[in-house]
Write a protein that binds this DNA or RNA. Structure first.
Lengths: 215, 215
DNA sequence: GCCGGTATTGACCAAGCGGTTAATACATGA
DNA sequence: TCATGTATTAACCGCTTGGTCAATACCGGC
């Protein structure tokens, strides 16, 4: 009765991909061992052979989700912007676009997030991932604070980074729950106005145009 | 075998309270008919007698959660602040404090939120509740934009309100997942610095002191 | 070519789920 | 006081779940 065999790593990867598909489509509590097995066209016993407990599967999937969701990649175009505040706002805008275009991945992440308040291992994983993500923004935030000390009085780099992440998450969450009614361009413009309002005129026009074309 | 009887409304209230307790403590997927019945010290058949389907119970609980979570009440102290931007920031700060002090209620709300991306009735309920909440902020935002037209160029009242809600949710969510490591005072100060940085000096000190004592 | 280790399968289990229903005890009005 | 209606209970049903396990077919090494 057994079917074709495969290497340990191949099978785990296949099963994880199936788990990702199931959880992404139907939510984290539809992530049953049987559903994953069916999606991967394997017996459900085999899933539990490679991931001894369902918990292991859930945790492994979390790693995959975090790695693909909160990896901040900065384009060279952004780094080339002369003004620190422009760079900061550009990165925020990039992430708002990216995450709001992946509502299902974002929803899955938020389901893990809520799960984390009860499941300690999930909590620490989510926490550290977010902390790394925030740390990436802190780098930009520090430059902003050095360049515009008067603009953000009493604001720390950590606090500013936290604000940035909140704006990004808030945008993604809004886009997640009702994608059509949420006006992402308006939101992005408001974020820009709140965060990136400064004196230099020449550099300000660049991002404005970019926002218009993207929206 | 039957026990004491009670009026329709009394029982529904009792059951809903039990449901709230269960879901608040153990999460929304621990909200089983049997768990609610056990919590209320009733038979699980009785729960399904008053709420014909589990779905009805879940939806009724959602109404309760939304009513108690996103009801914006404005103190007269806030309304007495002369500067529109100060009022705006004060309301944001108040809500950050309130929601971050209720991590379990907030987690329950987010679980419903995530659930809403699959369950249409949940989605519309959550959506409209959030829309009302945002509308309350829009009132303040309009005053801000009238008072400080130069400060927020290109920003609409709706967009500014959305930013405010994002900051509040971001704060509450951070506080939800790891309450001790998250520095709410720093976050609040940053939000204040980003949003409420303006010229008038006398009115600015008030909120600063209030923040320090509350933190 | 065959042989041993193991990846794979399907049958099985107990537990828990939402939902139904007949029996029953409680309240209430006559 | 008694009859009637119904809120309440417990037993039950079918189903799904996570997890176990013996049987088995595949594959690499000899």
């Amino acid at each position: 009765m057994p079917g074709q065999k495969a290497s340990e790593e191949t099978r785990r990867e296949q099963i994880l991909a199936a788990a990702h598909a199931v959880a992404s489509r139907n939510g984290i509590d539809a992530l049953t061992v049987r559903a994953v097995a069916a999606r991967a066209k394997l017996s459900h016993g085999l899933v539990l052979f490679h991931f001894r407990r369902k918990d292991e599967l859930v945790t492994a999937l979390l790693d995959r989700v975090l790695a693909t969701t909160f990896m901040l990649t900065i384009s060279e175009d952004v780094l080339r912007l002369p003004n620190a505040l422009d760079r900061f706002v550009a990165v925020i805008r990039q992430e708002m676009d990216r995450l709001s275009q992946e509502p299902r991945r974002m929803r899955l992440f938020f389901e893990y997030w809520a799960l984390g308040s009860r499941h300690s291992r999930v909590r620490t994983k989510v926490s550290t991932a977010l902390e790394q993500y925030r740390a990436a923004f802190r780098t930009f935030a520090e430059e902003v604070l050095q360049t515009h000390p008067a603009r953000f009085t009493g604001v720390t780099a950590e606090g500013l980074a936290a604000i940035a992440v909140s704006l990004i998450n808030g945008c993604a969450v809004q886009a997640m729950i009702d994608p059509e009614r949420f006006d992402i361009a308006e939101y992005r413009a408001a974020a820009h106005g709140v965060m990136g309002h400064h004196e230099t005129r020449a550099v300000r026009r660049g991002p404005r145009v970019a926002a218009a074309t993207l929206a």
